[in-house]
Computed example of a mutant assay.
Amino acid sequence: MQREGFIGGGAATRIRATGGVLLVAHLAFVAWLTLRPLDVPWVQPPNLRPFAGIRADAALGWEVAARQVAEGLALLAPLGFLLPMTHGRLSASPLGSLVRTVTAGALISLGVLFLQTGVPGRVPDIDSVLLNTTGVALAHALVVPACRAWLRRRYRRHEHLTLRQEEPSQGRTPTFPRVGIAP
């Protein structure tokens, strides 16, 4: 029996499997990018004050600040649509889905921050957690509702065409549930 609100059939399995593979690949890329040791002559102290790093980058010029903000937003942004894609729900609450996805993105970003404390040359920065989480939220808000609406329309159209093909000219034949042998 199909669970309520889930995509049905083989297409659903392919979408979820593709989402899972892309999610694992993206997380491996993020781990490789953020947890590699760096050879640097000196290391700055950790930034634990929100927006202090962004202000410092802005003092160096708007190009530097824009690049740092864009990199921070883009790093975990694919999680905004990959996490819901692996779940496969079409009729999820938009707010609930956003909250779950953003919470997962924030926890992953926080996990990366904690892991960076033990990596030589990497400096933990709270601004990266804020930017990564914002990137996840933006990607989810921009992509997921539109994709779910498109998939719902496609699924309903396919379901409607299937019913029309199976339906005899005199109406649908009633079906009765099977009854087992009484003891």
Results as ranks from 00 to 15, higher is better:
R3G: 12
R3L: 14
E4I: 04
F6W: 09
G9E: 03
G10F: 06
G10N: 07
R14Q: 12
R14K: 11
R14F: 14
A17T: 15
T18N: 09
G19K: 02
G20S: 09
G20M: 11
L22H: 06
L22K: 04
A25R: 06
F29N: 07
F29M: 14
V30A: 15
A31L: 12
A31F: 13
T34E: 15
L35D: 05
L38C: 08
D39C: 05
V40N: 05
P41W: 03
Q44V: 11
P45E: 11
F51S: 09
A52W: 11
I54N: 05
R55Q: 14
A56W: 03
A56R: 12
D57M: 14
W62G: 10
E63T: 14
A65N: 08
A66V: 10
R67P: 00
Q68D: 14
V69T: 06
A70C: 12
E71W: 08
E71F: 11
E71M: 12
G72S: 06
L73V: 06
L73M: 07
G80E: 00
G80R: 00
G80Q: 02
G80N: 01
F81T: 00
P84H: 02
T86L: 11
T86K: 01
S91V: 04
S93D: 11
S93V: 06
P94G: 10
P94N: 09
P94E: 10
P94T: 03
L95E: 04
G96L: 07
L98A: 15
R100M: 05
V102T: 15
V112W: 00
V112R: 00
L113W: 05
L113M: 07
T117G: 11
G118P: 00
R122F: 04
P124M: 03
D125A: 07
I126D: 02
D127A: 06
N132E: 03
T134R: 02
A137M: 10
A139C: 13
H140Q: 09
A141L: 15
V143K: 01
V143P: 00
V144W: 01
P145F: 05
C147T: 12
R148C: 13
W150C: 14
R152D: 05
R153M: 13
R154T: 15
R154D: 13
R154V: 09
H160C: 06
E167K: 05
S169P: 11
S169Y: 09
G171E: 02
G171R: 03
R172N: 11
R172W: 13
T173D: 08
T173V: 15
P174T: 10
P174H: 06
F176H: 09
V179S: 13
I181V: 12
A182D: 14
